[in-house]
Design a protein around this nucleic acid. Structure first.
Lengths: 170, 170
DNA sequence: AGCTCTATGTATAAACG
DNA sequence: TCGTTTATACATAGAGC
């Protein structure tokens, strides 16, 4: 094009590549805007180069697509790292998706449930250790007596059961 | 352009609009592909017209952006309904996002984690009940002996501790 | 890095099949 | 509703600043 036709392959010269990128990026965005107006179309466009700077265009018409407009992706490919910054209504969008599709992607209540169960878990673990006589230095006398009673009671039950099992053999 | 300059405003003639849409859509997609190759850029492009049929392009380089490529939006604007069908790796992408950003949107592992903790919880509950001598009808002789040992051991530890507490008072 | 210029390659509006 | 054609408008590569 222009002063000379170019082959569609990677432009090796870095500065030429950058210049072409900038020009063509503007060109595409312009075209995207035009087709939006001319044809009632909906366009979501995200372009980003190796600099990490991102440009995007989203036609205003389809509000349910605007999450694309709000999706900012900064990709540092050179360092093999990819950061994604999602702003705004992604969660809303996912919520909508879940409602419409019936697919359960994510449940805010899970977090609470996990917390609750974990706490339950922890206290049971402590009780178990206490019953086994471990970690009992922090216990006071009353607590020790309570555990002693529980253990004696359990022992009695277990021994009764044992005896009944032996009895059934004879 | 072409045989005559056109103003950038909605093309009222439906068939002309459709033709222009089709041509320009192809043009934009071609440009998107070109800038991808020429400039090492990453492009995500979604276009859809009033017909509801959607076209998209996503440069292959940035796999972390491919969810856009896999995001199919069928929008029935005329009926004020919006269906979103998200295929494939959206969940993976969100997971990656959460890891990289530290933002907790949702955790796919929650479900598994809850299951795991619940099972742990359950087995501890059973063990606790057994140690207290409850629900022991299903236990066999060896298990009873194991519990008896554990209880005796625990009782010894608790009694020792009790004794040492009493001793420190005198 | 960003702007202008300009020759030239492309995209495309309109027309036709 | 599709391709194909073609004249024309537009985009842009390269150069210069």
């Amino acid at each position: 094009m222009g002063r000379g036709k170019i082959e569609i392959k990677r432009i090796e010269n870095t500065s030429n590549r950058q210049v072409t990128y900038s020009k063509r990026k503007n060109g595409i965005i312009k075209k995207a805007k035009e087709i939006t107006v001319l044809c009632d179309a909906n366009v979501s466009l995200v372009i980003y180069g190796s600099s990490g700077k991102m440009y995007e265009y989203c036609s205003p018409k389809t509000k349910y697509c605007n999450f694309l407009y709000r999706l900012v992706v900064i990709s540092f490919l050179s360092s093999s790292l990819c950061y994604m910054i999602l702003i705004g209504s992604l969660i809303d969008m996912l919520d909508r998706y879940q409602r419409l599709s019936g697919n359960k992607l994510w449940d805010a209540k899970h977090e609470n449930e996990i917390d609750r169960i974990k706490k339950e878990n922890e206290s049971m673990q402590i009780e178990l250790r206490h019953l086994k006589g471990e970690d009992i230095t922090s216990l006071n006398y009353e607590e020790l007596i309570a555990y002693e009673d529980a253990l004696e009671n359990g022992l009695t039950n277990i021994r009764d059961k044992k005896a009944s099992l032996l009895g059934s053999f004879s």
